[in-house]
Design a protein around this nucleic acid. Structure first.
Length: 494
RNA sequence: GGCCCCAUGGUCUAGCGGUUAGGACAUCGGCCUCUCACGCCGAAGUCCCGGGUUCAAUUCCCGGUGGGGUCACCA
């Protein structure tokens, strides 16, 4: 039997990391098993569903590179099927109309709470005769349809969850739940089962918050005489205080969009997400390409314990979970340069900073410059922020760099004479660039390090970076000379 | 509160009766060095608690504790 899985988000917000992870695991499972990945938008809550959030979810998935084979289907388009299923359940005696008012039910809930037991509908309307039920319906009395939990035939409902194992719950624990609202619209538990059955889903992989609903759904499958799919629930991702993550509480940092906008490589982001609850079984954590992870993916190593998304609010050093940054950085420096370049280009284009020469005449230069600096960057954003000076003549000089430039008055002479010496140089090679600087340091009677650090600060605006002489070569003679002249002025100006 | 689920360093995890409890990130120190990063080396830090079962429990069972989920005419 061909594996068929689905991702069925409700479009009530942006795609957040929890949903992204669910989508990713489904996708990995489908690709691993040569199955189909279906995308279904569960938009039946018209109050909360918006086109924008649907678009946001699709965009997020596209960015991550999680492609779907079928869909997107929209749950709202299958309304009639859901209603038909409810009628069928009614006909089978597996469901019944309930005319109880909200007030009555609220009262029952209050009582249940007072008695410290779970609320269970008291089945008042189950006692209604078929005739009376029909008569009241015909008369136009408002009613909901409840599923009749078959407590006369079995004591427990159970299923074997692919990650949590055998789950069993006493049937007396489940109250007759509503499957169709009084306005005629079916509810999640019913619609979801009908849709999964129609879409021939073989494996339902979703967040563990669906675990407690599953017995109800199993009951519906059984009542309709449908085969139940395999369930595989995934532990939730929590925030550092163990609270469920939500955009409302946590803001942008939990949305996929945030990672897109902060220069994450899509697959590196997926790599990090995958690690939040899944392990390869050995020590490998970095998967530079999709195939590698697909090959290794298995439900056997999906964790049952909730994981904590370890982001720190307002931490200047870590804009998100340090491990997310580390994984992205690993991809940034380990990817073959030719595979990385397109993403760097996209980033520059997005920022409106791309120059066409960089994949034309200066293609080689661009590649080697990116290669030179990438090992100390964490995100693509670093190329346009920290790495500004490598690509543009306008660049900020960070305070510590400014300090290095003015560290010693002798540096004014140093910069001035170095620029003159470089100007007089025949070529501009690693060797003569370095020896020129060292000879000058001796002349000036200062340590080469002083001049080197000053020059680095002057030409890059940073105190850190690659070996200075490599930097100088990448920048080229002209730029170096003019930047040194400016630096000399900076020193004299104090 | 009822029911269900979970529990290895700060975080993500490996482990599946006998291990100096492994790896990654983060932290700290060292090497490298013109700085930073990379790379390499090293340090600190963990099996929630209590009972069993067993020659032997991080591992199996039970009970606590802690955390999470769920109990809607949301999905």
């Amino acid at each position: 039997m061909t594996v068929r899985v689905r991702f069925a988000p409700s479009p009530t917000g942006f795609l957040h990391i929890g949903g992204a992870r669910t989508a990713l695991y489904n996708w990995l499972f489908a690709r691993k098993n040569g199955g189909a990945f279906v995308l279904r938008i569960e938009d039946t809550d018209a109050e909360r569903s918006t086109d924008e959030s649907t678009a946001g979810i699709l965009d997020g998935m596209k960015w991550m590179g999680i492609d779907w084979d079928e869909g997107p289907f929209y749950q709202s388009e299958y309304l009639q099927e859901h209603k038909d299923a409810a009628q069928e359940l009614l006909r089978l005696g597996a469901a019944y109309r309930c005319f109880c008012t909200k007030e009555e039910l609220d009262q029952q809930r209050a009582e249940a709470r007072a008695n410290k037991v779970a609320f269970k509908y008291n089945r008042k309307c189950l006692a209604l005769s078929a005739e009376e039920s029909q008569a009241r319906a015909d008369r136009g009395d408002p009613y909901v349809i409840r599923f009749r939990v078959p407590d006369n035939r079995q004591e427990t409902v159970s299923f074997d969850d692919r990650v949590f194992g055998h789950i069993e719950v006493g049937i007396k624990e489940i109250g007759d739940f509503v499957i169709v609202r009084s306005n005629g619209l079916p509810l999640y538990n019913l619609a979801n089962v009908v849709d999964d059955h129609r879409d021939r889903i073989t494996h339902v992989m979703r967040g563990a918050d669906g675990l407690a609903n599953t017995p109800k759904q199993v009951l519906i499958y059984e009542a309709l005489g449908w085969e139940t799919p395999v369930f595989a629930h995934m532990a939730l991702t929590l925030d550092p205080s163990k609270a469920k993550i939500s955009k409302r509480r946590h803001g942008e940092v939990v949305t996929v969009e945030f990672y897109q906008e902060h220069g994450f490589l899509p697959w590196a982001f997926c790599n990090f997400m995958a690690l939040l609850g899944w392990s390869s079984g050995d020590d490998q954590e970095i998967f530079l390409n999709r195939e590698e992870m697909i090959d290794r993916f298995s439900l056997d190593h999906v964790s049952k314990a909730n994981s904590v998304f370890n982001y720190r609010k307002n931490d200047p050093k870590f804009i998100t979970d340090p491990k997310a940054l580390a994984v992205n950085a690993a991809h940034l420096r380990q990817l073959p340069i030719d595979e990385l370049l397109p993403y760097v280009k996209d980033w520059f284009v997005r920022q409106g900073l791309w120059k066409d020469d960089w994949d034309g005449a200066d293609r080689q230069w661009f590649a080697s410059t990116v290669d030179l600096i990438r090992s100390r960057y964490h995100t693509l954003e670093d190329f346009t922020e920290l790495g500004r000076a490598y690509f543009f003549d306008e660049y900020p000089i960070v305070p510590k760099a400014a300090k290095n430039i003015r560290k010693d008055p002798v540096l004014e002479q140093g910069f001035k004479r170095l620029s003159q010496a470089y100007a007089a140089l025949d070529g501009f090679s690693l060797e003569n660039v370095e020896s020129t600087l060292r000879v000058l340091s001796d002349d000036l009677g200062i340590k080469a390090g002083l001049l080197i650090n000053g020059v680095r600060a002057a030409v890059t605006g940073q105190t850190v970076g690659p070996s200075l002489f490599e930097v100088l070569l990448t920048l080229g003679k002209e730029r170096v000379i003019s930047r040194l002249e400016k630096a000399a002025v900076m020193v004299s100006a104090g």
